[in-house]
Structure formats: C-alpha cells, structure tokens
Design a protein around this nucleic acid. Structure first.
Length: 490
RNA sequence: CGGGAUGUAGCUCAGGUGGUAGAGUACACGUCUGGGGGGCGUGUGGUCGCACGUUCGAAUCGUGUCAUCCCGACCA
C-alpha cells in the first residue's frame, strides 16, 4: 500500500483528493476553486482530447473558437438558459487598473467602467447562436457542425479537483440543422460517440440514457447523457448531449430558407465533455496504491527500471534495457526508460504505481544472464518473468489484456451494485448501499422532487435500452411503463 | 450563502496557564548501498495566514479579515 495515501475504505473523498495531488495530476491554485493541471495530468487530458477530436472529425465536425467574453444582454435572450446559469456567472465590469493613489498596490480604475458588462462564458450557446445568425441563410448552409475546445467558468460554491472546479476545460459542440429529426439524430449520434469513447478508451462502462425534466439542461428539449458508477457507489455524469429544438434559433433569430423558399428557424444541438472525465477515470479504476490508467490513455504505457550495483552492472543492464525500449517503441508502445540514479528501484516501483503506469519492466544482471525480464502489471499488481525474446509482442498482448480487464472489472462492479427494487423500503436501502437503483417512477417532476428530498437520490437517466415493463411507481404507486436509473450522484 | 473545524519549515504536525520556535518527512553534501519508498553522519530551511489591539514582551490573549477542509442549499 502507498505510504502516504489514505485508503479508500477509510475515507473515499480524502483518498481521491490525495491521489490527485500525489499522482502529480493537479494542484489547487492560489485562486479559489481553480486548479493547476500538472504536466502528467495534462498529458492524460491531451490523450482524451486527441482521441475525441478524431471522433468528432470522423463524424463531420470542424473546430472553431468563439470568445471567452459574452455581452451580458445575450444572456437574457433565452429565458430558461438564463435561469440555469445566472447564479454562477463571473462578470467583467472594468477594463483598467491603476496604482492606488493612497499608497500600496493596484486598484480598479473606476473611470474605466464597461458600458456593457461582459460575462465570462459558463457555456457558449448565446454567443455562438448570435454568430450563427449571420452564417446561416439557406438550407445549403446546413447542417452546420462545429466544435470548440475551450475553458469555461462556473462560480461553484463547493469545488473538487477535476470533478467540479470554477474554471474547467471542455469541448462544446454546437450544431444547426434543417429539421428536428436531423437534430435529434445528431444529439443521439454524439451520445454514442461519447459512450464508445468512454467505454473503449477510458474503460469506464456507462449507462446511455435520457434525462428527466428536472435534470435536463437549461434551454434543452431533451438531454441525453452517459452516467458512470464510481467505486463509492455514487454516480457521475460523464457527458451530455442536448437536443435544443428551436429555442436558441428563436431567441437569436437564426432562420434559413428551405428548398420550397419558406423561411424557418433552424434546429439545434449542443454536446460536451469536460475535465470531469479525469475524475471519472480516477474513481473508476484506481486503488489504494494509487492511480490505475487504462493503457490506451496512459502517457507512458510501460516503464523500464534498471537494477544494478556499480558502474559495470549499470552499463550491462542499461544497454539491454535501451535495446528493449527501442523494440517496444518500434511496436508502437509508449515506453519510458527510467535511468535516474537519484532514486532507488524500490522507490521507483512505488512511484510508478502511484502514477498508474500499466506495465513495469525491471531488468537486473540476473535477468540479463537468463534472457528474461520481470514484468509487473498495475491492474492486478502481479509479476511474472517473461523472455526478452519476443517481448514487444508479449507486452502488446498484455496491454490489451489490461485494457480489457479494467473494463471488465468496472462492468462487474457496476453490475454487482445495480439493483432492481419494487418497494420503498428496498429503494431507500439500495440507495444507501450505493450503485444504480432501477425502479419504477410515475414520470412526473413532482414525484422525482419528492424522492430527491427524502433520499437525496436522483434519476440519473432513463436508459435508452431499458425494456418496457409495467409496474407501479416506487413512491406514489401510480402506473409506470419502464424502470429508470436512480442513484446518489456527484 | 448558513453550521463546524483548522491555519507554525516544501509536506504532516508538536509547542498547558505570554518570555523570542521544535520533531518526523522532504531537500543538500558525504559515505555505505541498490530485485518494493534504505542505513549512518553533517547541513539548509520558518516576517508562526494577514491586520489591528492588549502587554515591558504575543505562535500563545482579544477583535477583525483572508484562506483551506468537512457538513448542508446549487451544479458538468
């Protein structure tokens, strides 16, 4: 067990906070609620970005960039949207500082007040739709499929590294379509892009579903989401995709002429995932020894640690190790050779475990003599001796096995903590135990609200694949046609 | 924004009833070492969160302020 890391069973949330810092992913910054994403954490985010970006391109999207600042007046154009975000917006009121005439420091120059205050974007719908109005005239301009990678600011009261920070990084897609059907299809398509990515690359199983009215994005007609289950039994929304109907098109007067020459408002979607995915990654796979990374996301998939005493052994071991490194690299494996003489092997072992490197290879004089290496896998913490001959091939296989195993373990956990219940008592007990609770609900916002007040459990989603099933609402006993997924959530 | 707790070395913390700051760890150097966070020796490192006040004297007492953490209301 890691020396300085609190065990999950002792205090899960402390474990998370310590792990993020100790694994060198991020730090709290001087600004409340904001984080410094450190190089190792950022390297993982870059891999997430790169993979997702390729998937966006494959589905026909292009990247663009819209401003950080949004005129305040834009915000009031779409009523439910304002209501959703007004309470957490940072506002720019001045554009100049000056030296304090009374002495120390620097103060806001009150004479430099902005005519119209600027909002630091909490999301970009308003500025984007204000821009789209000028870009769209005809059905020939549609669909408009744009994504942007950006930072946004939401003035949260309680923050946690990656899970909820005042400023966070994300991607937001904003698309315009000629028909409602096409826009819905886009929103659903992106939901599946997210689902496939999170499951296949991040090895995190997710429920794909639809949000209830209460949980829907402010300004959307329908919100699709992927929901993941963390090790402590709490659900985490990992991505959302919204069908916005014509709400923003009407608010910003974005119209096009169809083939018949008739003028119509366009149909919209927006979809996003954020650095919160890093939190999901950590809380899905990691253990009491530290971070566990799926090979597809690990900045270093393999690390080679030389074991030696004295210059002679080092020279012998290092030559072999570097040769193996070259072979693994040639096979497309991201492999690091740690030749630092400032740390001892045991220290390095612990460090790479803390940082979640999937495979560790140790090579000492004995191994060189026997033509083998010691291969340790992070997911199971097991070690075995493998021949140097054909190592690149066996490590490739091993990496795939680890990727598969992590996903399988996460699925097994998710399934074992998912319960179907039919009575209120069982429902409350299941929520307390953690995990998804599949239960009947009468479909009304009032009932959902009451359940939330009583149990702190919310409807995470109405799964897309949940079968029709006649039943009675867990709270009211009113008729229901299918089960929905409840859980306590982050 | 309410309720609670805490701010002392990079980190974790000790310093009853006021008298000018200490340990572990980390870091630096030397040495023995090296297959799971090494041993020994020497050394560096702190305007005690900040401001004001009480006092001959404040890490210690008082007031204010800022920050962090935990618990609630809001959220990706």
């Amino acid at each position: 067990m890691a020396k300085n890391l609190t065990a999950r069973a002792t205090d899960y949330s402390r474990w998370y906070n310590e792990l993020v810092v100790q694994a060198d992913l991020a730090d709290n910054s001087a600004v409340r609620g904001c984080m410094v994403i450190k190089p190792y954490g950022y390297a993982i985010w870059e891999r997430i970005q790169a993979d997702l970006d390729a998937r966006f391109k494959e589905t026909g999207h292009v990247n663009a960039y819209f401003p950080l600042f949004i005129p305040k007046s834009y915000f009031s154009k779409e009523a439910s949207h304002v209501e959703g975000f007004a309470k957490e917006c940072a506002v720019v009121t001045h554009y100049r500082l000056k030296n304090d005439p009374n002495g120390k420091g620097i103060v806001v120059d009150e004479t430099a007040k902005l005519e119209e205050e600027l909002i630091v974007r909490p999301t970009s719908e308003t500025i984007i739709w204000d821009t789209y109005r000028d870009w769209i005239q005809s059905y020939r301009d549609l669909p408009l499929l744009i994504n942007q990678w950006a930072n946004v600011v939401r003035w949260e009261m309680r923050t946690r590294l990656f899970l909820r920070t005042t400023e966070f990084l994300w991607q937001e897609g904003h698309t315009a379509h000629a028909t409602s059907e096409e826009a819905v299809a886009e929103a659903v398509q992106m939901l599946h892009v997210y689902g496939d990515f999170v499951e296949n690359v991040m090895a995190i199983p997710v429920l794909r579903g639809v949000k209830s009215t209460n949980e829907r994005f402010a300004g959307a007609l329908e919100t699709y989401c992927i929901e993941a289950m963390m090790q402590d039994g709490k659900a985490l929304q990992a991505g959302t995709s919204h069908f916005l109907g014509q709400n923003f098109a009407k608010a910003f007067d974005v119209k096009f002429q169809n083939k018949e020459g008739k003028v119509e408002h366009v149909w919209a979607t927006s979809w996003g995932v954020s650095t919160r995915l890093m939190g999901a990654l950590i809380m899905t796979h990691s253990d009491d020894n530290g971070l566990v990374l799926p090979p597809k996301l690990a900045p270093d998939q393999v690390v080679i640690v030389p074991i030696y005493r004295g210059e002679e052994e080092l020279a012998l071991v290092e030559a072999v190790a570097k040769n193996l490194q070259a072979q693994l690299r040639a096979a497309g494996i991201r492999v690091k050779y740690d030749g630092r003489d400032t740390h001892k092997p045991g220290w390095k072992f612990n460090e790479y475990e803390l940082k979640g490197v999937p495979v560790r290879i140790a090579i000492g004089p004995r191994d060189v003599a026997n033509g083998v290496v010691e291969v340790a896998r992070r997911d199971t913490l097991s070690k075995e001796s493998l021949p140097m001959e054909g190592l690149a091939a066996s490590v490739s296989v091993l990496l795939e096995e680890i990727q598969t195993n992590l996903f399988a373990k996460a699925v097994a956990f998710r399934n074992s903590t998912t319960k179907s219940v039919d009575t209120w008592e069982a429902f409350e007990a299941a929520l307390d135990e953690g995990g998804f609770v599949m239960a009947h609900w009468d479909g009304t916002p009032e009932t959902e609200e009451k359940i939330k007040e009583r149990t702190k459990g919310t409807i995470r989603c109405i799964p897309l694949d949940s079968p029709d099933e006649v039943g009675a609402c867990i709270l009211t006993g009113n008729p229901s046609t299918r089960r929905v997924a409840f859980a306590r959530a982050y």
